[in-house]
C-alpha cells in the first residue's frame, strides 16, 4: 500500500520556507516506503523559492513521489519555476501536468 501524506498536516495551507521543504524531504527520505503519494489538497500557495526547493529535493530523492490534488495556484508556481529553469539553461527536472501531478522527464 502506498503511503499517502497530506501536506497541510506538515505545512499548513501555505508553503513558505525552503528549510521547511528540505526538513520535510529529510524525514520523507528516511521512511521505509519506496513510493509515496503527496496530497496537496488544501495547499493554497507555494512560494517560488519553495517550488524551486521542492524540485531540487524531489530530484535527489530515491523515492517514487506522486503528487495529487495540486491546486491551480500551486500548479502555476511550479510551471513558472520550470519556465525559469529553461530561461537560465538549467535542466528542467519535471514535465508538468496539473491533471496528472508532476512527472519525471
Amino acid at each position: 500500500m502506498v503511503n499517502k501524506i497530506l501536506l497541510t498536516s506538515k505545512f499548513g495551507n501555505n508553503i513558505f520556507t525552503r528549510s521547511s521543504i528540505s526538513d520535510f524531504f529529510r524525514k520523507l527520505n528516511s521512511l521505509k516506503d519506496k513510493e509515496i503519494k503527496l496530497d496537496f489538497k488544501g495547499v493554497e500557495f507555494i512560494s517560488r523559492s519553495c517550488a524551486d526547493e521542492y524540485f531540487k529535493q524531489k530530484k535527489i530523492s530515491k523515492k517514487k513521489i506522486i503528487e495529487v490534488n495540486i491546486s491551480k495556484s500551486v500548479f502555476e508556481m511550479f510551471r513558472n519555476v520550470c519556465i525559469q529553469y529553461k530561461n537560465v539553461g538549467s535542466e528542467i527536472p519535471f514535465r508538468i501536468s496539473r491533471a496528472r501531478g508532476l512527472l519525471f522527464n
Partner: peptide, 17 residues
C-alpha cells in the same frame, strides 16, 4: 490575490535562510 502571500513568503524565507 496571492500578492501578500508571495511577498511575505519570500521575505520570511530570506530571513530564515
Amino acid at each position: 490575490g496571492d500578492s501578500i502571500k508571495y511577498i511575505l513568503g519570500e521575505l520570511s524565507d530570506n530571513i530564515d535562510e
